[in-house]
Design a protein around this nucleic acid. Structure first.
Length: 416
RNA sequence: GUGAGUGUAGCUCAAUGGUAGAGUAUCAGACUGUGGAUCUGACCGCUGCGGGUUCAAGUCCCGUCACUCACCCCA
């Protein structure tokens, strides 16, 4: 008999951690409402082709990490590894580009990638993110980046670094890639086997390699910043200027590349030293060709995605105020009916009320009240019932007073 | 996909190759109108799983699975 466990890379979330998730989710909704972003919820699985076309069929994510399956009608479907392609698809499909203003969305929900789990990395993981369409202004880039950093700041996550780069566009990137390949080939003998393979496939990834020899060689490679076309260069300058208006500090990182193919111009990433190897809290950038490539209008787009588990890891020491609750005790089962009715009235008034139906005697009930961390225990037994009152015990101070039932609500409003 | 570390009670951890233990939690009682403290008792295990070595394996060896961390990749 094998015990059935959660699949590798998945996990259960419950109290007390779940409180942090509620806190984070509420914070996301509240924060992005201020920017007039609208929440969008897209399916958790999509046609596989959406991701291979959107993310890029040569990317690591599409080649090795997708949960792809065939349904009973032989459709190839895939559990979403990220949400940008889906949001774009949804906007196209629902004609949102014509009807909805502003074209600014945020989302949150589970994503799936077949990765080897480690700290901050799961096979089912939660991301939240934003997508802004139809605006190529560099100031929008800055606003999106500002919102990401500022949001983390609001959560008191401040020991982070914002890396910024421009990865060019179809006008300038191909020429740069050729220059880069040439430089890499010239030093091919110094590179590791992995990086030699990257030269023809995705030479930008060589910059990611942590092998000292590769990093050393990559230090001499040309960087894209010197090969941007006029438009990309001006855009990048304007983004940096707008970030300075917003007092967002950043680190220019000419070696920053993104894992998904659709990025153009601005690319950014926020990392944290507190996370271990998987140190990216969020990453994103501009994708001015994605919407068109997926069959939509020729419109710009920019967004980012953040790893919620990784943010939760930064909320370790967050002290969430415990929910105050009332405990109704009844002493002897013969008074249970009165207790049930009192609990019902209290809940109707909005109070969180706990009633223990197994309470055999007062001692046990008070013990349970202690266990559930009740602020007050309301005792309803023979004396109280006879006098139409209730004994209210403050569990912290041990003070206990008898209050007429008709005054209870007013008293609680005052003291609870 | 590669590597390393760790798998013993619900949880945290002990146990020279020689009868599997403690703390904690849970339950009951001391204490039938009152919680936290204390004391007493009870419950708690195919030592991840499968092989092997040995008179004897939680302990040594091999395999396997799981978890953790790292590589890789990324949020």
């Amino acid at each position: 008999m094998n015990e059935i466990k959660a699949p590798k890379g998945t996990r259960d979330i419950f109290a007390p951690e779940i409180h942090k998730w509620h806190y984070l989710e509420n914070a996301i909704h509240a924060y992005y409402k201020k920017f007039l972003y609208q929440e969008i919820r897209t399916p958790i699985f999509e046609h596989s082709e959406l991701f291979s076309r959107g993310i890029g069929s040569e990317t690591e994510v599409v080649q090795k990490e997708m949960y792809t399956f065939t349904d009973k009608s032989d459709r190839s479907l895939t559990l979403r590894p990220e949400n940008t392609a889906s949001v774009v698809r949804a906007a196209i499909e629902n004609n949102l580009f014509e009807n909805l203003v502003p074209l600014r969305f945020y989302y949150l929900g589970p994503m799936f990638r077949y990765d080897k789990p480690q700290k901050g990395r799961y096979r089912q993981f939660q991301q939240f993110g934003v997508e802004v369409f139809a605006d190529d202004s560099p100031q929008v880039d800055a606003e999106v980046i500002f919102s990401a950093v500022d949001f983390l700041k609001k959560l008191e996550i401040e020991s982070v670094q914002l890396d910024l780069n421009s990865v060019g566009c179809p006008q300038c990137r191909p020429a740069y890639l050729e220059v880069l390949k040439k430089a890499a080939r010239a030093e091919e003998s110094k590179l590791c086997a992995d990086c030699r393979r990257k030269i023809d496939g995705n030479p930008l990834r060589i910059f990611d390699c942590k092998q000292p020899a590769c990093a050393e060689a990559a230090g001499r490679f040309p960087v894209i910043g010197d090969h941007l076309c006029a438009e990309c260069r001006e855009h990048f300058v304007a983004v940096r200027e707008a970030l300075s208006w917003m007092n967002v500090p950043f680190v220019l990182n000419p070696r920053l590349v993104r894992g998904l193919d659709y990025y153009t111009k601005t690319a950014f990433e926020v990392t944290s030293g507190q996370l271990g190897a998987q140190n990216a809290l969020l990453g994103g950038g501009r994708y001015n060709n994605l919407i068109k490539e997926l069959g939509g209008p020729d419109m710009a787009g920019i967004g980012f995605a953040a790893g919620m588990e990784r943010i939760i890891l930064h909320l370790e020491h967050l002290e969430l105020p415990g929910r105050k609750i009332l405990f109704v005790a009844y002493g002897d089962p013969q008074w249970l009916a009165h207790a049930v009715q009192l609990a019902e009235v209290l809940r109707e008034e909005g109070y969180p009320v706990y009633l223990d139906y197994q309470g055999k005697n007062l001692k046990k009930q008070f013990k349970k009240a202690d266990r559930v961390a009740a602020a007050f225990t309301l005792l309803l037994a023979e004396d109280e019932i006879r006098s139409s009152s209730v004994s209210v015990k403050n569990m912290a101070t041990q003070e206990q007073i008898k209050i007429p039932l008709k005054d209870l609500n007013a008293w609680l409003k005052e003291n609870f």
